[in-house]
């Protein structure tokens, strides 16, 4: 690992001031530290944001559930508020990585990183989330831009993620047998305004499958899924799963999610 300056600010403002194009925020460090150790990334400044109190916590207010950016996966998985308001989100968090990862990794880090196979991005899209940063509010469907790419600007800090509480929802993950990240993960959420089917793992970035969403908005049943064609074009293809297989699994896991709703 290359040497770097370590900072531990207590306020968001201080953190953003320290940030530059050659810095990184340290939340759970579950992505950042391994990539620094492997020499894939190096930074001049590492800014630990876990000391900023207002970035963590879970709160339900009316129709939304708000989770602070540095809240750990294990906290989301065990939270009574989450289990009660959006049980599928608690279940999703429980299925991330292993106990070590869940007790370190954070929701803010996960969505800022935007791994194509990460679980949380699908939740944000399916649950019409609003990403609150130190300077603006961003709709989830605009936030995720591509592989490991979001619309965050240099030094912009995610403060919290606000989810719309759905009428029904379920997340089904088909884990990669090696990494246990999602080969595909399908998040189905039924809101007053319609159904969202958000898919992760299948393409370079999580997305809302419009065809599945509209089919399920019309008819919320697994047979409705059966009649939708999911195209393999643009889907990931690797040693674990071809594009064709992924496309089929999107349907299989969408059906499972609808049936489990």
């Amino acid at each position: 690992m290359k040497t770097f300056n370590y900072h531990s600010p207590k306020e968001t403002k201080e953190a953003t001031k320290l940030a530059s194009s050659n810095s990184v925020f340290l939340a759970g460090g579950m992505t950042t530290i391994p990539s620094m150790k492997l020499g894939l990334a190096s930074y001049k400044d590492v800014i630990n944001i876990k000391g900023i109190k207002k970035l963590s916590g879970i709160k339900v207010s009316g129709k939304t559930l708000k989770i602070g950016a540095t809240t750990k996966h294990a906290e989301v998985a065990q939270s009574k508020e989450v289990k009660k308001s959006i049980p599928s989100l608690a279940a999703l968090a429980e299925g991330i990585g292993d106990p070590q990862v869940r007790n370190r990794g954070t929701i803010g880090g996960s969505i800022a990183n935007n791994d194509p196979a990460a679980d949380y991005p699908s939740a944000c899209i399916a649950l019409n989330a609003t990403i609150h940063t130190d300077r603006r509010k961003i709709d989830a469907d605009k936030f995720f831009r591509g592989m490991f790419e979001t619309c965050l600007k240099t030094g912009e800090i995610i403060e919290s993620i606000e989810f719309e509480i759905p009428a029904k929802s379920n997340y089904q993950k088909f884990p990669n047998p090696a990494s246990r990240y999602a080969i595909v993960g399908v998040y189905v959420a039924k809101h007053k305004g319609g159904v969202n089917v958000a898919v992760t793992g299948a393409k370079s970035c999580a997305y809302n499958d419009k065809d599945l969403s509209s089919a399920l908005t019309k008819n919320f049943s697994s047979s409705a899924v059966q009649n939708v064609r999911v195209s393999p074009s643009g889907m990931n293809s690797d040693i674990h799963a071809s594009a064709e297989y992924r496309a089929n699994m999107v349907k299989v896991f969408a059906k499972k999610a609808v049936e489990a709703c």
């Binding site: 047998p177 090696a178 990494s179 990240y181 040693i239 674990h240």
Partner: peptide
């Protein structure tokens, strides 16, 4: 059922970590 060492055509080891080699 799980383990497989995979080299690509140029001889690069694709399964060089637990992300890809299924223990």
């Amino acid at each position: 059922l799980y383990e497989n060492c995979h080299y690509d055509e140029s001889g690069q080891l694709v399964t060089a970590s637990y992300m890809d080699y299924t223990m």
